[in-house]
Nucleic acid binder design. Structure first.
Length: 870
RNA sequence: GGGAGCAUAGCUCAGUUGGUUUAGAGCAUCUGCCUUACAAGCAGAGGGUCCGCGGUUCGAGCCCGUGUGCUCCCA
């Protein structure tokens, strides 16, 4: 069959992915082999594939494919997350488009819409991962709201409650006034925001002199229950114990003192609003202040405020400022920039709010999880994230786990009409428990309306995908848990990574994974985060169509060291596509030889075969080391250069027969073997093109996808050194040809002056071909009227028909001479330093002496060449 | 305000207990080639005050201090 001009990925990708699935290569069952397990960070069920997923999943696929080829029982588990807030928001939006409001629906009606939506759009992302070539065990696909998984989440809640770690409490939480739910601290994004600082005058009881406070939130003054100053502040000492009046509503509030107040911020006097600020709340508790909540759920002003009731908080901020000014309470305003919290999901300003929520006490379960990372039971790559992790774990706060949503795991708390409650997995258990705990039989109970935080289900992921909680001790969880490597973004180190470690230690009594590889964030060429609003996220599936999945994988991997952000540039995909073509063309070249193989000895190529065989083993060993250290990007670069430079540019050119000339069987078979090994080495990174070439190279009964790697990395130093020498000599002579503008077709005569005849003799034919020499001779003399080039300790004289341009020759040799003289000086300076001789290690001194000898020899040779020229 | 990290070629990055050269790679640039696998290619070349200053050391891109600029996390 005629091969196409360039590699055409589309049909080929489809073909091989189907073949791999059909062969069941990605399916894993426990057996006698060692397992290598990765659980995929479950994307949002309604998500679509973006660059972050592409990076993340390409890395996982590389690791899992490589493990599979190293003889492990590789298992990569896919799945999706129900993503309560994000999905509920999408469903609410979809309903709104159809003219239905959430509030007009019952819980069950809403949930049936949500499930309908999930069935229709859920899991699109998993189909997209197939395009990328991900070798996932699809039979194990899990959803965080599958029946067993759902029950496990509920049972974990019940169990933690029994252990006394889950409690209900009124606390300051982050309130999302749009989604109408509490948020955990991690779901709040802080952004620098330009605001105004308002200086307000509060009248003081029995005085004409007002006290001035500074605030960015004048709309909360109706909730003020004190003014606080620093006890050491001389300006306010006369006011201690006095009272002030809140402007507009004229409420009488005490002036208290606390060291918490910073004297040099604003006026040094702080209005205290316990209902609407976390720090004020703490201050209020300490000084037993009244708490007046002046906001409704949706961010409008409540009855308790007395004025502006029902109007939006930001509208009121503008209006009240005007009113305050008109009535003489506003002294001045200043520009002020500070960080304001926004909801991760709805992007509205988060309102600190006092609310009755469910909490998980973290301190006890965090301790073993911290230890596991600090004692390197779990390794982080790159290790800098250990510090981040430790800092968070040592200052951990209780986790607010309830969300005012319907889509998710419903909190298994049951209340009677008096507000008494029990926590139980289902209603009948709850009724029994109610009798036991509250002495009320056959109680009429109502279940809590709220759901659990999404992360309260995904923290069970590494074991519950193997049903480690719902079916404890089953064969799968015993075999696959703990998993090996978690690949994820540093952004969710607290949300997810830390909590999985806690859940693993608590319920499996074992770490959930041995290593965590943190990827970077994919940014655009200018370093900006990819976002919908900037419109700078490329269409990944479009790119795959255009360049092929292998090229996309190459492009995203070639410049992405662990933990560093990657700047995405489409040019990298072009490079990947070009690489495909390069390999494809090498294949075409070799296929051309197929009809010309003859059974003879070919001494001319044996040098090349020997060299490349060693080079391949050397590079495989290097790649092996880099992979062990998760240096994936560097490993890919090494393989790229091994294939493009060493194999294509050097090896193939060395063994390539002349036009329509035959090739020896040994060389031909060796070349196929080398190419196959290269494809194998590259396969985890670029699975499709490598499988295709592997099968094009020869009739096969196997697939590269599951072919075991060789483990022999031993090399012959001589073969490698001779290869390098030859490469340098060829490059050096080509350089002279280039500079002297000797036409490619023009032949030269080469004279070699060397102590090392034997090496050059064995590769004479090959050498001559590479530099287009019609003769190679050995000499002990200078050859006049020739161009000279010095490689190592050998001198090459290049004779042509052309007159020799001695000045250019001389100049370049003198430049080289100057370099080595400078170098020699620096080495001699070092060796002449007594303290160096005294202090340096003997092998360092020996090395310096060798450098000196080498430089001197080189200088001698170059000097002779220069003399020969004049 | 507290903490972590980064600064090396035009760009993106390597540089592994301080000594393997007067610092490397890919991309980009420049020069010459339509050479019988590949012009999406081949053969070459140029390009750096390793952010500034100070220190430790026989020796610093690497260690310490300090300044500048940037990024991230937490309050």
């Amino acid at each position: 069959m005629e091969l196409s001009k360039n590699f055409e990925p589309q049909g080929i990708e489809q073909k091989w992915y189907q073949h791999w699935l059909k062969q069941g290569y990605f399916n894993s069952k426990p057996d006698q082999r060692t397992p290598y397990t990765i659980v995929m960070p479950p994307p949002n069920v309604t998500g679509v594939l973006h660059m972050g997923h592409c990076l993340n999943n390409t890395i996982q696929d590389i690791l899992i494919r490589r493990a599979r080829m190293m003889g492990y029982n590789a298992c990569w588990v896919p799945g999706t997350d129900h993503a309560s807030i994000a999905t509920e928001a999408k469903v609410v939006g979809m309903l709104r488009e159809r003219g239905i409001t959430k509030s007009s629906l019952s819980r069950d009606e809403f949930l049936s819409y949500a499930w309908e939506w999930k069935e229709k759009y859920g899991g699109i992302i998993l189909q997209q991962l197939k395009k990328l070539g991900c070798s996932l065990d699809w039979d194990r696909t899990t959803f965080t709201m599958d029946k067993d998984y759902y029950d496990s989440v509920i049972n974990v809640f019940v169990s933690l409650h029994k252990k006394g770690l889950i409690y209900r409490g009124k606390r300051m939480i982050n309130w999302d006034v749009k989604a109408l739910t509490a948020l955990s601290d991690e779901e709040v994004i802080r952004k620098e925001t330009k605001q105004k600082l308002y200086f307000l005058k509060y009248a003081i009881e029995g005085s004409n002199e007002p006290i001035v406070i500074a605030t960015v939130r004048p709309e909360t003054i109706m909730g003020d229950t004190a003014i606080c100053v620093n006890p050491a502040d001389e300006r306010y000492k006369h006011l201690h114990g006095k009272f002030a009046f809140v402007p507009l509503i004229n409420r009488r509030i005490p002036i208290i003192t606390d060291e918490y107040v910073t004297m040099d911020f604003g006026t040094g006097a702080l209005k205290v609003t316990p209902a609407h600020d976390t720090n004020d709340y703490a201050l209020g508790q300490k000084h037993q202040l009244e708490v007046i909540d002046v906001f409704n759920d949706n961010g409008t002003i409540s009855e308790a405020a007395g004025i502006y009731v029902g109007q939006d908080r930001f509208e009121v901020r503008k209006k009240i400022a005007v009113e305050l000014e008109e009535k003489g309470f506003l002294l001045k305003t200043e520009e002020y920039t500070s960080e304001v919290g926004y909801s991760e999901r709805t992007d509205v300003v988060v309102e600190p709010r006092l609310s009755l929520q469910w909490w998980l006490s973290m301190e006890k379960i965090a301790t073993p999880a911290l230890k596991a990372v600090m004692e390197d039971e779990i390794q982080f790559y790159p290790p800098k994230f250990r510090n981040v992790y430790r800092h968070w774990m040592e200052n951990i706060k209780d986790w607010c786990i309830s969300r005012q949503l319907w889509w998710g795991h419903r909190i298994p708390a049951w209340y009677n009409e008096d507000g008494k409650f029990v926590v139980a997995a289902n209603e009948s258990e709850a009724i029994n428990l109610f009798e036991k705990e509250h002495g009320i039989s056959n109680a009429k109970l109502k279940q809590d309306e709220d759901c659990l935080d999404t992360w309260f289900s995904s923290w069970l992921w590494p074991f519950e995908v193997f049903k480690g909680f719902s079916n404890p001790g089953n064969a799968d969880v015993k075999y696959y848990y703990p998993t090996n490597t978690l690949v994820t973004a540093p952004e969710i180190i607290f949300f997810w990574v830390a909590r999985m470690i806690m859940a693993g230690m608590e319920y499996m009594e074992e770490i959930p994974f041995k290593e965590v590889y943190f990827t970077g964030i994919v940014r655009d060429k200018q370093g900006r985060k990819m976002s919908k609003s900037l419109g700078n996220s490329p269409d990944l599936l479009g790119l795959i169509d255009q360049y092929g999945a292998d090229a996309a994988r190459f492009g995203i991997m070639i410049a992405s060291p662990a933990g560093n952000d990657i700047l995405f540039d489409e040019a990298a995909l072009e490079q990947g596509r070009n690489f495909n073509n390069k390999m494809w063309n090498a294949l075409k070249l070799i296929k051309m030889w197929e009809q010309r193989v003859i059974d003879t000895n070919d001494n001319d190529s044996s040098f090349a075969v020997e060299w490349f065989s060693n080079r391949l083993k050397e590079a495989s060993g290097e790649v092996n080391n880099m992979m062990q250290q998760f240096r994936l990007s560097e490993a890919l670069k090494s393989i790229y250069s091994l294939i493009w430079d060493d194999f294509c540019s050097w090896y193939l050119e060395w063994v390539k027969p002349g036009f329509e000339q035959p090739i020896s069987k040994t060389t031909y078979l060796k070349t196929i073997e080398f190419f196959s090994s290269l494809m194998q080495l590259l396969h985890p990174f670029m699975p499709f093109v490598t499988e295709e070439i592997y099968h094009q190279l020869a009739e096969r009964n196997d697939d590269i996808c599951i072919k075991s790697f060789g483990t022999d990395f031993s090399t012959s130093t001589d073969a490698l050194q001779n290869g390098d020498l030859l490469k340098q000599a060829i490059s050096g002579i080509r350089d002279v040809r280039n500079k002297q503008q000797i036409k490619p077709k023009e032949t030269i005569k080469l004279f070699i002056q060397t102590q090392n005849n034997a090496v050059y003799q064995q590769l004479q034919v090959l050498f001559a071909k590479q530099i287009n020499a019609d003769s190679i001779q050995f000499t002990q003399e200078n050859i006049s009227d020739s161009f000279t080039v010095v490689i190592g300790k050998d001198t090459f004289y290049i004779a042509t028909e052309k007159p020799v341009d001695k000045t250019g020759q001389k100049e370049s040799l003198e430049k080289e001479l100057a370099y080595f003289q400078g170098f020699l000086t620096s080495v001699e300076k070092k060796l002449g330093n007594e303290r160096f001789i005294q202090n340096a290690k003997p092998d360092v001194i020996a090395l310096e002496q060798k450098k000196k000898a080498d430089a001197e020899a080189k200088i001698k040779i170059i000097t002779e060449s220069i003399q020969a020229l004049s």
